[in-house]
Amino acid sequence: MSRVLEVENLRISFPDGQGGRLYPVDGVSFSLERGETLALVGESGCGKSLTSLALLQLIPPPGRIESGSTVRLGDIDVLGLRGERLRQIRGRRIGMIFQDPMTSLNPVFKVGDQIAEGIRAHFDVSRAEARSRSFNLLQEVGIPDARSRLDAYPHQLSGGMRQRVMIAIALAAEPEILVADEPTTALDVTVQAQILEVLDRLRATRGMAVLLITHDLGIVAGRADRVAVMYAGQIVEEAPTARLFARPSHPYTQGLFASVPRLTGPVQRLTPIGGSVPPPSAWPAGCRFRPRCPKAFEKSELAPPLLPVEPDHRMRCWLAETGGARG
């Protein structure tokens, strides 16, 4: 397999309001192979969306990406790019879709024109050709009656249809990587199923690599090849999907699984993690999960690195040294 994206030691900081800085993303590393889907999973505030925005230098000021962070796209150092060179990467090589399609749709332009504009920004084609490609894209993302929808304004479409249009715009430039940040979180479950089906199909036919950002373990199952679980600005566990679901090993990952209500099997009392996710200003020294961890022990006062559990499976927990967190 060929590696299309490599993120190394990504650190993002914001001023803390008292002259110092906070690091909501603190040393995140991962890579994507061609055609692969990696899921970045975690609860609100763990840094997963900031991580995805940083890939294209989209961190809003006064936030900044710290020096020493790298994002490599093939042999391009993305974080070193500025101006036109950066614009060529955005959209063209890495496409993005978000939870709220209205953030990337312009309310005053017809959707057909918005897709065509995206096509013409990246390819030297005629208006007529761009319009015909837009039509094909709308069909590809499963919009019924695509011909007439080309002339619709975003507000005339349902939430699910808007999300499809946003996917069409992201695909217009034929990116090799698609970053999908909670693409179905705002949608009803039957509409979510429609959108996920579209994404699955496109990934298969186009061979795109996908970085799927979600809080929902159900969406990850049967979709992602690998999973990285984030907590407090760091990846705390990473493994192939089947392995992670069969053997979640970090106490945080285990707590997440124990918190999810199921549709099948006996109804049992849930055993949630105590407390709540602390804000970056309150992250403890040592293992950041320590105050909520039922298995914390003396060594937890030191910050654990990512340690191997099995080949291909790593976690940020000292118990990996003894195999003690598997359960």
Binding site: T190, A193, L196, G218, F245, V260, R262
Partner: peptide
């Protein structure tokens, strides 16, 4: 059937 279940 649309509910995504956390079980691969």
């Amino acid at each position: 059937s649309a509910v995504p279940e956390p079980d691969p």
